[in-house]
Design a protein around this nucleic acid. Sequence first.
RNA 1: GCCCCUAUAGCUCAGUUGGUUAGAGCAGCGGACUCUUAAUCCGCGUGUCCCAGGUUCGAGUCCUGGUGGGGGCACCA
Length: 584
Amino acid sequence: MALTEQEQIRRDHLDALRAAGVEPFPADAWPTTHAAADVLDAFDDARHQPGEDGEPATEPFRATIAGRMMTKRVMGKAAFFHLADESGQIQIYVRRDDLPEGFYNTVFKKLLDPGDWLGIEGEVFRTKMGEVSVRAENLVLLAKSLRPLPVEKEAVDPETGETRRFNEVSDPEFRYRQRYADLALHPEVRDVFRTRHRVVRTIQGFLDEQGYVEVETPVLQPLYGGAAARPFTTHHNALDMPLFLRIADELYLKRLLVGGFEGVYEIAKDFRNEGLSRFHNPEFTMLELYVAFRDYDWMMGLVERMLEAVAVAATGSADVARTIDGQTHTLRFAAPFRRVPIFDAIAQATGHHLYRDGAVAGRDEIAGVARQLGLEVDDSMGAGKLIDEIFGEAVEPTLIQPTFVTDYPVELSPLAKRHRTKPGLVERFELIAGGKELCNAFSELNDPLDQRARLEEQARLAAGGDDEATREIDEDFLRALEYGMPPAAGLGVGIDRLTMMMTNQSSIRDVLLFPLLRPETISADDIPDGTIRVVELASGGWRVLARVNGGNKSETFRESEVEAVEFAEWLLEQGGYDRLTMSS
RNA sequence: GCCCCUAUAGCUCAGUUGGUUAGAGCAGCGGACUCUUAAUCCGCGUGUCCCAGGUUCGAGUCCUGGUGGGGGCACCA
């Protein structure tokens, strides 16, 4: 691999450390007494601060800490740097004469670099400039950093009192591809994932308290179902059979209701083979919950209480700040949330009552309203689809405060029970907040004959070329339903989008530690010396990469893999190379 | 799949109408400095200007095609 000058210098430092008898990757543990933030919290000037003239503190405050060296300010025989651990940063004061003979000049000044993990032991004090710091009496290298972390600097603006950051890494690609560096540099990014952890834990704690059981159902499924989406497919060798990564876990959780569990939930990774966007990642986390003997009305009450608990856990209060189109709103996740039937919401927004006298308006009337709103209408769109479009255009973006939208047209909701009093509608709600859907819930369909009819309709769609419809009927699921599934309320919550809401992030990539990106392109710099490699290009074609004695060769073949391989083999025969590898 | 924006040093960015040897700050290297904090001061420029073609006497700059990334649309019960 080609090393940058700075990478080479750090490797030189590594060798020099070993030569000086300092192990760069020691095995010894370094048990700490404090986190950086604990030291800052606990410091008390009256008891811990030494006197001006070398007078010892009335109660010296000794601490052993560990972290990453972030900055280094050397002033001859003394130096300062900041040490960052998970809790925050604390300044370290180093003096030549506090350390063993020669260590400061030959090791600390020359061979330790920003990014190195250090252990510090010493007394806590406040500097003349007023910053609580640790005076290092023992300084130990815990792990050497061989790759320079980008350096960002901070300063407090004297007028506003706000901390400004300079040279901040702004390239999103760098941040997502090298999340480890992003996290090391940006405590606030770590905070997002701590909040995500609290969101999940709060939900689990809340549901556990109700007596519900968290379960694990198969990720690898012989048939996929429970949603409409294209699946990822894979293959099991020993059984020689295709398998699908789940697109939902609904059908397995319902089997558990049949089996006698009265409240089950799963926080699951689902996988959908679809596009990427600010709101979509091919693998994402979904909460699904099913509770026997309850209905969607009851479920709204549970969601209100659960999300209030989540908001408090995530932000400290039920009021959550949310930036939408550059405007900051305060979303109140305090029960009860507003409830509005979808047709009432549409009527308020458009003036058109499309559900009258116990029936949904005619398709032509609905299409007319859609056209008035500037929506494109084509003949394939049914009444249900048009209602959905009108809602999405005219209502959804206006629902900033958490709002339950209820009683959808039956065509939109094949898995929900028909409404007990309103013909043509189903018992379903979505929770909308900040103009986006957060939850989807039904009174669940438990009639096995009706369910069979609907799955058969799906299979017909699949045969007709709809690649999001499930091709095969899940006979085992129907067999389970035939034994009898209790009436139940079901809920789905997108955990990623909920976390976006609670942390005020605008992209799903900012709440996923490792969002999916296209693979990095390999260049000749990235392969070991003395090797030749043939790589297939995402853009089509093949490239032969060769590297010997630091010299690179790169040759692209658009048309033929055979030509590329023949060229690589010819190159190998010319000598100087000892290896030819193929990579996909 | 379509549209817009974008890619220059490890990081953040300049780079004029196409002009000869591509710049700055930070980081790094050498030196000074025992309370600094975007430390300071002196000296040093480290590069596949995303890739491949093309136009031109001459391309970081213009054109065509491609790739990565961001945003929007479409898709997503």
